[in-house]
Design a protein around this nucleic acid. Structure first.
Length: 123
DNA sequence: CAGCTGACTTTTC
DNA sequence: CGAAAAGCCAGCT
């Protein structure tokens, strides 16, 4: 279903940011899976760039919602944003708890656990 | 309104 | 393998 537009808040919530879309997608990432910034960007639209997704994650800690940002890595499966967590090792710890294997700041067999919103949601 | 910035990606050397 | 540059675009100052 096209839940892209389901994000639309009530009239009261006039402040609508594209961050909401990113958060919504990230929150739907199943446990034990991970996706890339580019995949989310592609799902949200061609006008979206990977940097916007990463930037949205930067704002995730400001959001009241709990965003599993550890499940979002770059296209190589490298934990590029780990330094933005409370501790540089927190991101890896969270992914390990999800059942993933992290080796040298990189998700082992990333392509196997890759979760593409375009395929899992839109399709 | 204009310039900066950024948790990315791809190409090139 | 690594460093550098260019493209990308919305939000912030």
């Amino acid at each position: 279903m096209s839940r892209k537009k389901t994000i639309k808040q009530s009239s009261t919530q006039k402040e609508y940011s594209f961050f909401q879309d990113v958060f919504d997608v990230v929150l739907q990432i199943p446990k034990g899976r991970a996706t890339s910034y580019g995949a989310i960007a592609k799902y949200l639209g061609t006008k979206m760039s990977a940097r916007m997704v990463g930037w949205a994650m930067n704002a995730s800690h400001t959001s009241s919602l709990k965003i599993p940002a550890q499940r979002v890595v770059n296209r190589n499966g490298i934990l590029t944003g780990k330094f933005h967590f409370a501790t540089p090792t927190l991101m890896e710890e969270l992914l390990v708890k999800d059942g993933l294997t992290i080796k040298n700041d990189t998700i082992v067999d990333f392509k196997n656990v890759f979760w593409d919103p375009v395929i899992e949601l839109d399709l």
